[in-house]
Amino acid sequence: NSASGPLPDGWEQAMTQDGEIYYINHKNKTTSWLDPRLDPRFAMNQR
């Protein structure tokens, strides 16, 4: 992992069949290639 600590509440790390890691936001029912622990847009929304 490139980030430390647990994923934010509602997020899950998953892997594609090709072995690529992505992240699932169960609250918004969206997915992201960016780790939410590193995404400044997500961090701003949590303050």
Rank of each mutant, 00 (worst) to 15 (best):
S4A: 05
R47P: 05
H26W: 06
L7Y: 14
Q13R: 09
I21H: 09
S2P: 04
P6F: 07
Q13D: 06
Y23N: 00
L34E: 03
R37V: 03
E12A: 06
P40V: 13
N45F: 09
D39E: 14
M15R: 13
M44P: 07
W33Q: 01
A43Q: 11
L34W: 05
R37L: 03
N25W: 04
T31D: 00
E12Y: 05
E20F: 02
Q46C: 04
Y22Q: 02
Q13A: 09
S2N: 15
K27I: 05
T31S: 14
P6D: 10
G19R: 06
R47T: 10
D18N: 13
S2V: 07
S4Y: 09
F42C: 13
P40G: 14
L38N: 15
Y22D: 01
S32N: 02
K29G: 13
I24C: 03
M15Y: 12
I24K: 04
A3R: 10
K29Y: 04
P8Y: 05
S4M: 08
Q46P: 05
A14F: 03
N28A: 14
W33M: 04
A43R: 12
M15Q: 14
P40M: 14
S32H: 03
N25F: 02
E12V: 07
H26M: 09
R37Q: 05
D9S: 09
Q13P: 08
S32T: 15
A43I: 08
S4C: 09
T30C: 15
L7N: 05
G19V: 03
G5S: 09
M15V: 10
P36G: 00
M15W: 09
P6Q: 10
N28W: 15
D18F: 06
D9A: 08
P8R: 06
H26V: 07
R47Q: 04
L7I: 08
T31I: 01
F42H: 11
L38T: 15
Y22G: 01
L34G: 07
T31E: 00
N25D: 12
R41M: 15
N28M: 15
N28I: 14
M15H: 11
R37K: 05
K29R: 14
Q46K: 15
M15G: 04
D18K: 13
A14N: 14
Q17V: 10
N25G: 02
G5C: 08
D35N: 11
L38M: 12
D39I: 14
S2E: 13
T16F: 02
D9T: 09
H26L: 10
D39S: 11
P6K: 13
E12F: 04
S32D: 01
K27P: 07
R47L: 07
L34P: 01
D9Q: 06
A14R: 10
W33V: 03
W33H: 04
P36C: 00
T31P: 00
L34C: 10
P6Y: 06
I24Q: 05
N45R: 06
Y23M: 00
R41D: 14
W11H: 02
R47E: 09
S32V: 01
T16A: 07
K29E: 06
H26I: 07
E12K: 09
S2H: 13
P36M: 03
A14T: 11
T31G: 01
R41A: 15
Q13I: 06
N25S: 11
P6W: 03
N25H: 14
S4F: 08
A14P: 00
E12R: 06
L7S: 05
G5D: 08
L38G: 15
K29M: 08
Q13S: 10
S4E: 11
L38H: 12
A14Y: 04
A43M: 13
L7K: 04
L7P: 02
R41S: 14
P36N: 00
P6A: 13
P36Q: 01
M44H: 08
A3Y: 14
N1F: 03
S32Q: 03
N28H: 07
T30F: 03
P8F: 04
P40Y: 11
G10F: 09
D35H: 06
K29L: 04
L38W: 08
N45K: 06
Y22I: 00
M44Q: 12
R37C: 04
M44V: 10
Y22C: 02
M15F: 10
D9R: 06
P8G: 07
P8T: 11
A43W: 11
D35W: 01
K27V: 09
G19A: 04
K29D: 03
W11R: 01
G10H: 05
G5V: 12
G5Q: 05
M15K: 13
L34S: 09
N25L: 02
T16P: 00
N28Q: 11
R41E: 14
N28Y: 15
D18M: 11
G5H: 06
W33T: 03
K27M: 09
N28L: 15
R41Q: 15
G10V: 03
P36T: 00
I24S: 02
P6G: 10
S32Y: 02
T30D: 02
Y23I: 00
P36F: 01
I21A: 11
D18W: 03
D35M: 04
R37D: 01
D18A: 12
